[in-house]
Simulated assay, not measured.
Amino acid sequence: MNAPASESTTPVGVFVGLATLDVIHRVSAAPAPNQKITSSTQFVAAGGPAANAAVTFAALGGTAVLVTALGDDPVAALVKADLLTFGVRVIDAAEGSMRSVPVSAVTVIESTGDRSVVSADAVNSDASPPADLEAVVAGADVVLVDGHHPLIACAAAEHAAARVTTSVVDAGRWKPVMSELIPHATDVVCSADFRIPGTSDTATTAAAIVGSGVRTVVTTHGGEPVEWWSEGFSGSVDVEPVAVVDTLGAGDAFHGAYAYYSTQTDAVPERIAGAAHVAALRCSVIGPRAWLGRLSTDTLHYP
Rank of each mutant, 00 (worst) to 15 (best):
S6D: 00
T9L: 06
A19N: 01
V23I: 15
A29P: 09
S39I: 09
S40T: 14
G47T: 03
A51N: 03
A53F: 03
A54T: 06
T56K: 11
F57M: 13
G62A: 15
G71T: 04
P74Y: 01
D82P: 01
G87V: 00
I91A: 14
D92A: 05
A93C: 02
P102G: 12
I109Y: 11
G113W: 01
V117G: 13
D121G: 12
V123P: 11
N124T: 10
S125N: 07
A131E: 06
A135E: 06
D141Q: 08
V143P: 05
L151I: 10
A155G: 08
A157H: 10
H159G: 09
A160V: 02
R163S: 12
D170W: 03
W174A: 12
K175V: 04
D187I: 08
G198C: 08
T202K: 10
A207Y: 06
V214L: 08
V218H: 04
T219G: 12
G235W: 03
D238M: 11
V239R: 04
G249Y: 02
A253T: 07
Y261S: 13
T263F: 07
E270L: 15
A279I: 05
I286F: 02
I286E: 10
G287V: 03
G287Q: 07
G287P: 01
D298T: 13
L300H: 15
Y302K: 12
